[in-house]
Design a protein around this nucleic acid. Sequence first.
DNA 1: CAAAGAGCTGAGCTATTGCTCATAATAGAG
DNA 2: CTCTATTATGAGCAATAGCTCAGCTCTTTG
Lengths: 209, 209
Amino acid sequence: MPSADRRLQPRREPRQVRAELTRERILAAAAHVFSEYGYAAGTTNRIAERARVSIGSLYQYFPNKDAILAALLVRHIDRGTWTRADELDLSPGTLAATVRALVRDAIDNHSEDPQLLRIMIEEAPLSQELLDTIDRHGRQRVAQIRDLLALHPDVRVTDLDTAAELIVFTVEINTHKLMADPRPIPVERFERELANMVTRYLRGDRHAE
Amino acid sequence: MPSADRRLQPRREPRQVRAELTRERILAAAAHVFSEYGYAAGTTNRIAERARVSIGSLYQYFPNKDAILAALLVRHIDRGTWTRADELDLSPGTLAATVRALVRDAIDNHSEDPQLLRIMIEEAPLSQELLDTIDRHGRQRVAQIRDLLALHPDVRVTDLDTAAELIVFTVEINTHKLMADPRPIPVERFERELANMVTRYLRGDRHAE
DNA sequence: CAAAGAGCTGAGCTATTGCTCATAATAGAG
DNA sequence: CTCTATTATGAGCAATAGCTCAGCTCTTTG
């Protein structure tokens, strides 16, 4: 299983509709196969078979197996995550609602194919390039949330940067957990408690620490 | 790469000291190799080589590759996690300190070989049996924390079960993240903010929700 | 309606892996 | 010291993976 070739770009750009369709079929099949078998056992032959495409065709559009998963991941990232900050209410007394919107957004963004998402994040041998892309998006999101927190009058947390990082990660990872859990907590309860935790944290408090 | 044989027990129980040492060397080597290469690329031959043991010897004590990682995981679990509940202070006004102790404990428990731990949890193809073991321990821990929360006078959260599950997972996973992060937050800051979040959540508050 | 290029096919090559087994070395009992 | 059970060895097998390439079919173009 050599994968010395680290290119992630297709070796041939689709020029006909037919080709575009094939590429699409491959990606769709890959999503199914990875999600069902995991990354290691999700073989390229299985993917090709499921896409009803020959293995040769698969390798015309993806230089190697990693590139297929990378394409799926990039596509997911590009679909965007988290509500845009400017659509949120920043008037006093609205923190709970704001946080709740963020939590709900995270849930929505992960309810599509949680199993695939888990595999992409946990099992995939990500290239450095891809890791950087993910990292960049992560930072961007953290920065966005930090700015949001800075603007909201109800936020009384001292260390804004750490707080932003902490809640972005916590919300995201807990959502993953919810989706993957074989016996998950009911969504409403989960959403409420997670939002409560974040809200109370951000509000700070006047008790003795 | 067949692994139809799902046994996790050794095929031969060590009866001489020499054998016990060999087994130990294999496990130590496996920890290194998995931690360095990941599960898939951490081949049994590499492990045997690192342990300075023939591949045949390896297969005398572990029926298959999965069993090696399983043994490492079980060993980690058995080392125990989280402070015993009865050592904690339950008098009023001590919630922050209590939570902080729990957080610190989680950090301590994961600082040994975070990379290996990550691989065990994320990359390992866990058998149902092992999954059940992990699940059981998880439930036990959640139950333990829930009982603790029920006893503490400062805790004002309504849904105790959900709260316990939420904070156990959140603390653990955030600790993982901290360890794995290429550019991690300073530990003290991390510890403080995470503990703050949990404490404030548990305290509840009297603001309008 | 050709010619040319784009797209597709799948048998099979190469590499690698998990693992076996016949054999040798070593340890401990009597 | 001898005999037996235990432990160790490593060449190599069987399985399977990722991936190539020579030749085919289909589209497009002029």
